[in-house]
Design a binder for these strands. Structure first.
Lengths: 210, 210, 210, 210
DNA sequence: TATGAATGAGTATTCATTCAT
DNA sequence: GATGAATGAATACTCATTCAT
């Protein structure tokens, strides 16, 4: 939606050269995100991205140098948006559940792409892998104080934070990786996000408090 | 190791032509498992498998028809071995922890290949994906009565079995997918299996009973 | 000529697999030599070679791995033939003029390709450059004793052999590089070889003996 | 060096727009000469020339139309400078050796570029090839009277001028084409120019007179 | 005039698959 | 049944050239 309007804007509103360039860059990034979500990151050819973006094949390389560069840029771009969303929707002093809820909310908008990322990142070049690490650091950064507070308050079991965090991410990624199985026709997070959240909270909660 | 002993067994017992054929098939399967573990399933060419097996490139196709067929067969073959191992090492009436321990033990021998499987399965054709589902059903089959018993006994929280199972698998796969990070130089299961097991048990245990 | 007869032989006489392979290799080498002579070495695409040879594009790489490998193989193949020719046509104890004559004779058959080689070698990858060095060593090897004898006999001026040799090669290559200018419609060596030889001999000869 | 001083001269004298245009043209030509010397003529992209010149990629085409046009212009420009240098440094009535010495001196300043020219000219489009022919005519024009005089005086053997001239150019180009071999770390003309000159003179000299 | 973003044709290389031996 | 030579479709990347600003 926003993409189309952008395109219209672009063709109707004459812009400076550098703005045009930025716009083309955005178009390619957005197109790549769409095709990546649809077909998979590794399974997508640079030509397919160019076609989806409505630009020449060469333009992809003029902007991103290599396929790896493109992939890294798409992930980084996505990571920034995710981070922004996360910061906006996570109140200071929010509880563990609220932070995890924000996490799911942030992902939900781009569930398709995020699911591909969860699955394919281990197979991507290191530059791209690093980007995902940064994304997750961001989430951990929000989660950490919430967990500590809840642990101190006794509502959450004491346990090493990394293990707890990785359990959550593992659970989430596992369901996303098997979306077709767990939510054949709909958004996985839409249909089962709440359930996953409840389940995880019950796992980490101290027995009596829940 | 178990692979080599299998080869030796077969080659010391010369048999009819159809047995020879079976032997070639086994060699290709074993070779594929090795290269897949080393290089990745999707990153491995059929030619590389043939070379590792010491057979002609054509033989791979004579036996498995297509690359997809080969991959599916390798996974199926692996699934059968895993299932066997699981049945052997899991005593009747074992507790939840023991079953999960058996699970890790069964995987440990082929950690490299299993890790590839955990990562790449979502990207493989559906035939191969189905095979992994069957493998996991098998584990669930062993786990189910143990959990139910422990739940009845009150040592494990009551919760939907699939969620519990998927949390375990999600956790395990997440660590396997990031082996390089979590166990740079050693076997992940060797160095951190126990820790994962303890962590998971503490998650699903009722507070006082553990 | 020999090429065509070879092709005929190939298609009429069923051969063993390895002979077939050698035959394909030969076809590609011969085709490459022809196109290289016609279009230039660097200006020729691997696809053009494949088309000229009547094989698939992939075959070129099945046989020579890379374009560089192909070029190196073509030069090496040519060098061997040249060396053979040189050995055959150069009698033991031949004089300087006779050896140089043999040199020209050996080149004449493949003047087109040799001219390309003379021009493009400095621009080719080092492996290929080395091949040309070997070819010229071969000529120097024949020339050396002849010069020495003639120098001792007083019919050739005393001078450092490398300078003398490089003057000859420089002269020859310069004329070959400018064939279109010096022999627009015919073979340069055919039409002007004798002249070059006479000229060079007069340069290196002692005044009185000529 | 001489190139830089030229630029300075031009940039300190701001002039009309058409002078500005000339200035840009000169900058591109000088930059191209530098990159050509460094990387090779054929191996240099128009974008690399633009970058070296500090102008936009489009400017190259605004001034020279095509890549071929640029190359031809660079060579022509070089030829003019060489011709000028040659005229200045060659005294009327100079002997053969002096003229050849002037030739080497003229080239020495731009040895890198001239060596590329010697090697790559046969591979360049005809317009560029023609330029080199003109350059060499120029040298021949200076050499001709000197040779004739020396021949008449009996110090140089009688022989067709073109053959003599081409032997000289062939020798020179052969050494330049193999600079890496003959003068790995230094200027070829610096380290071996005298030697080549002596050798060539001894070749064309009558025995006793030298 | 100068710019530089965009183009698209061209190229080397890979690899699953086929099939004659 | 096994072989391995041959195939050809697919794909990332380069670069001269154009043209709107």
């Amino acid at each position: 939606m926003s993409i189309e309007s952008t395109i219209i804007t672009k063709s109707t509103t004459p812009q400076s050269r550098s703005a045009q360039k930025l716009e083309t860059r955005r178009r390619i990034l957005a197109a790549a995100r769409r095709v990546f979500a649809r077909e998979g990151i590794l399974a997508t050819s640079t030509a397919a991205v160019a076609a989806e973006a409505g630009v020449s094949h060469g333009s992809v390389f003029a902007h991103f140098g290599t396929q790896e560069g493109l992939i890294a840029a798409v992930i980084e771009d996505f990571g920034e948006a995710l981070s922004l969303h996360l910061h906006e929707s996570t109140e200071r002093g929010a509880g563990t559940r609220e932070v995890l809820k924000s996490h799911l909310d942030a992902i939900r908008e781009s569930e398709g792409f995020y699911a591909r990322l969860a699955v394919e990142t281990p197979l991507l070049p290191s530059e791209a892998r690093l980007s995902l690490v940064l994304i997750q650091s961001d989430i951990a950064f929000h989660l950490s104080p919430a967990i500590e507070a809840d642990a101190k308050a006794g509502s959450v079991k004491a346990m090493p934070l990394p293990l707890l965090f990785n359990t959550w991410v593992g659970l989430l990624h596992y369901y996303l990786a098997n979306r077709e199985l767990f939510a054949p026709d709909a958004s996985l997070l839409e249909s089962r996000g709440e359930e996953l959240l409840d389940h995880f909270m019950s796992l980490i909660s101290t027995g009596g408090k829940r």
